[in-house]
Simulated assay, not measured.
Amino acid sequence: MSEKHLVCQGAICSCTYGATPDKLKVLTQTKRYINDKEGSTKLMATNMDIGATFEKNTFGPCKMQPLPGGGFKPCQIVVTAWTGFYEKITLQDNNGKALLEDSKATCPIGGPDCIKIIDHGQTAEVSAQNVENADKEVLAELMPFVDLGENKNTIYHIINSNQ
């Protein structure tokens, strides 16, 4: 799993045969959050997140479903299976395996692995622990006008106010 991100609620996915991306919705569990210090928005996605599991449930017009007069029928996302998930993590809640940023999904219309993850959904956030563990010389280079003798919570708030 080296250097691969776990996937969470809000991950952006696209289909080989669609025109627009959609955001993944985790509907199979409600307890396991990742990359979310408040523990309220970024549920971990698993291979059990199948069916209609996207916000809009469409990738736009589906190139696999042409209309007789031209154009294409609208896509209606139905995930039947995921591949490329991380075998070493199994959630007790849904018995699912963690999805990775290179996991792919199967749709009955588009076929195996036609849906891919284009953004895993995680975001980088600086925490107080990051500031605590940071090298003072690195902090001095990043913030030359900040007195590093100040309380580290103050430094943490300075960093987060600039994001």
Rank of each mutant, 00 (worst) to 15 (best):
I50E: 06
G18K: 03
D93W: 12
M1V: 12
I158A: 13
C8D: 03
D119H: 14
Q29V: 07
V126W: 13
T30L: 14
F54D: 03
C8H: 11
Q29T: 08
D22C: 05
K23D: 04
P74A: 06
V7W: 01
D49M: 04
P66F: 00
I89K: 03
T123I: 05
N160A: 03
N57H: 11
Q29P: 04
A81I: 05
V79K: 06
A134M: 15
D113R: 07
E150C: 15
I109P: 05
K37T: 14
E125Q: 09
L91I: 07
Q9G: 09
S103L: 01
L67I: 02
D102C: 00
M48S: 09
T90P: 02
K25E: 13
E137L: 07
K152L: 15
T80D: 02
T80G: 01
N162V: 14
H120I: 00
A19Y: 09
N94V: 03
L91V: 08
M1Q: 06
I50T: 12
D49R: 00
T90C: 06
D36G: 10
L99D: 10
G71C: 03
V126A: 11
D147R: 01
N151Q: 07
Q129C: 03
G84S: 07
A134C: 13
Y17R: 02
K42N: 12
D113P: 13
D49N: 14
D135C: 13
Y33K: 09
N35D: 13
G149A: 15
T53M: 08
F54W: 04
D135G: 06
T16Y: 07
D22A: 01
V146S: 11
Q92H: 13
S127T: 14
T106E: 15
G121F: 03
D119P: 03
K116Y: 11
L24A: 12
E141F: 10
V126L: 05
P108L: 11
T83G: 12
N153I: 02
N153F: 11
C75L: 02
A140W: 02
E141P: 01
F54L: 03
P66Q: 01
Q29G: 09
N151H: 08
Y33M: 14
P74W: 05
V138W: 08
K23M: 15
S127Q: 12
Q29H: 06
A19H: 08
H5N: 12
I159C: 12
L148S: 02
L6Y: 10
G39W: 00
I159S: 10
T20A: 11
I50W: 06
A134W: 10
G60S: 06
T30R: 15
D113W: 06
M1I: 11
Y86A: 10
K42Y: 00
A45G: 04
A134T: 06
E141I: 02
M48N: 10
T90K: 10
T123Q: 15
F72E: 11
Q76C: 12
P108D: 14
Q122T: 14
L100G: 01
I109G: 05
A128I: 08
